[in-house]
């Protein structure tokens, strides 16, 4: 554990909780992509199956349970409790275009051919692109609520901080996992356009709207 990894985890946690609180407080999930949330639920489920097979630390297990619970809680709020507020007309990204190629890639580029390892690798690849339906939705509606922007910024920052963590671990522990590193870089690059808009607009008190 190092400061980059911890900041990344806390940023990730903040993002997930921010989204839950936003939906709960406003009683609405307008502007949120249910498809991205479905993909994140698949990501956490396939990655954290190791909750049952290996124990790393109380911290790790606790965070995994929180991420899983929050993810399914978000799905429940979006698709059941506040379903009428879900803006499905603008959430039109075809997620099979992400699910299938990630699955195929996880059979091609994987460290070890075991079920757990392939599922873990799949979760890494799918996570890298899971935000695309949400970014697509923002581009289609041309705007995002400020709280949604904060959510996206925290979620994007998490993998960027993990990149710093991997650089740090490479020099201090000789730790190198090219699968997570490349996928993490792809994931972070997808947010770059949004980061630019966030810094130039939202941080100056303006609403995020596309030109």
């Amino acid at each position: 554990m190092n400061i980059f990894r911890l900041s990344g985890d806390l940023s990730h946690l903040l993002a997930i909780l921010l989204l839950l609180v936003k939906i709960w407080k406003t009683r609405s999930c307008a502007g949120i992509s249910g498809k991205s949330q479905i993909l994140f639920a698949i990501v956490y489920t396939t990655r954290y199956l190791d909750l049952f097979t290996s124990f790393v630390s109380v911290y790790n297990s606790f965070m995994k349970v929180v991420f899983l619970t929050a993810s399914y809680g978000t799905l429940y709020l979006m698709f059941f409790k506040f379903k009428p507020t879900y803006d499905h007309n603008h959430d039109s990204f075809r997620i099979l275009y992400l699910i299938i190629p990630s699955l195929v890639l996880s059979f091609i580029i994987v460290h070890v051919y075991t079920v757990m390892e392939i599922l873990w690798t799949y979760s890494i690849y799918l996570e890298a692109v899971a935000i695309m339906p949400q970014l697509f939705m923002v581009s289609r509606t041309g705007e995002a609520e400020t709280i949604t922007s904060h959510y996206l910024f925290a979620l994007g920052s998490y993998r960027a901080l993990y990149i710093l963590n991997w650089i740090y671990r490479y020099y201090t522990e000789d730790f190198l996992d090219m699968i997570v590193i490349i996928a993490g870089i792809v994931q972070t690059i997808l947010y770059c356009d949004f980061f630019y808009l966030y810094i130039t607009k939202v941080l100056k008190g303006k609403r995020l709207s596309l030109p």
């Binding site: 990894r5 985890d9 790790n60 965070m63 995994k64 991420f67 000789d174 730790f175 190198l176 996992d177």
Partner: peptide, 10 residues
Amino acid sequence: YQKNNQKDEL
């Protein structure tokens, strides 16, 4: 090469 067989990250 990779040394990450125990997945200690989230």
